[in-house]
Amino acid sequence: MNWTWFHRLASPPSFFRFAERFAPWFGGLGLLLLLVAWYGGLVLAPADYQQKDAFRIIYVHVPAAAVSLSLYIAMAVCGAITLIWRMKLAECVLVAIAPVGASFTALALLTGMLWGKPMWGAYWVWDARLTAELVLLFLYLGVVGLNGAFDDPRTAARACGLLAIVGAVNVPIVHYSVVWWNSLHQGSTILKFGKPNISASMAWPLYAGLLGTYLWCGYAVLRRAQNELLLRERGTRWVREMGTELAGTADVC
C-alpha cells in the first residue's frame, strides 16, 4: 500500500492548506444541515405520542451526546498516535478536540437535565448513564487543564494523550450503561440492532442534526488544529508565508 498521500497530508503545511480549503465546506454544510434539522425538529416533526412536544429536545440532546463520545474516541486515538509515532499533527488534533468535546458534553448534560425535569420529574439522578457522562466532562476538562499546565506543547500533548487513553475506559461505560444496568435513562433509540424505534417523520431531522453536528465539530477541530500548528511551527518558513498570506484575509474568514 502506498502511504505517501498520508505522509504528505500529515506534514504541517499541507494539512494546514487542506484544512484551509475544507473547513469552510464542513462549516457551511453543517450549518445547512443544522438549519434543516432544527426546522424539521421544531416545526415539521409531529409531537410524540407519549412525551408530546418535550421530545423535541432530542434534536439537540442526541447529537451533542453522540459527538461527545465520538470526539473522545478520536481524542484517545490521536493520543495513541501521538505516543507511538510522535506525529505533530496528531498532537494538534488531540489538543484541538478537548475543548470542543467538553462543550458538547456540557450541552448533552444540560439538555438532558432540561429534558429530565418535565419527563422523569427530576433534573438529575445519579444514574449510570448520567454519572458516566459527567465523568466524561471531567475527563475532557482534565485534558484541557493538563495541556494548559505545561510550558512545552509537545510534552503537554503526550501527557494529555496518556490521560485520554486511560479515560477511554469510560466510553464503553457511557454507551452501554443503559444496557448493562437498570437505569432511569431510556435505552438506545437509533444505535441498536434491528429497526430504529423512531417513526420516519421524526427520524429524518435527527439524522440531519447528527450529520450536521459532526460536520460542525469537524469545522471547529480543523480550525483549532490549524491554530495549534501555527503556534507550534512559528518561526518556520511556511508559517511566515502563511501568516502574511492570511493576514489580509483574517478579517473576512
Binding site: V135, F138, L141, G145, L146, A159, I173
Partner: peptide, 22 residues
C-alpha cells in the same frame, strides 16, 4: 503525569477524582 509541573499540586486532585468515581 504532573511530576514536573509547578502547579501540579492543584491539578492532581482534579485529574484523579473523575478517574476514581467508579
Amino acid at each position: 503525569l504532573t511530576v514536573g509541573l509547578p502547579r501540579g499540586g492543584a491539578l492532581l486532585p482534579v485529574l484523579v477524582l473523575p478517574l476514581i468515581v467508579p
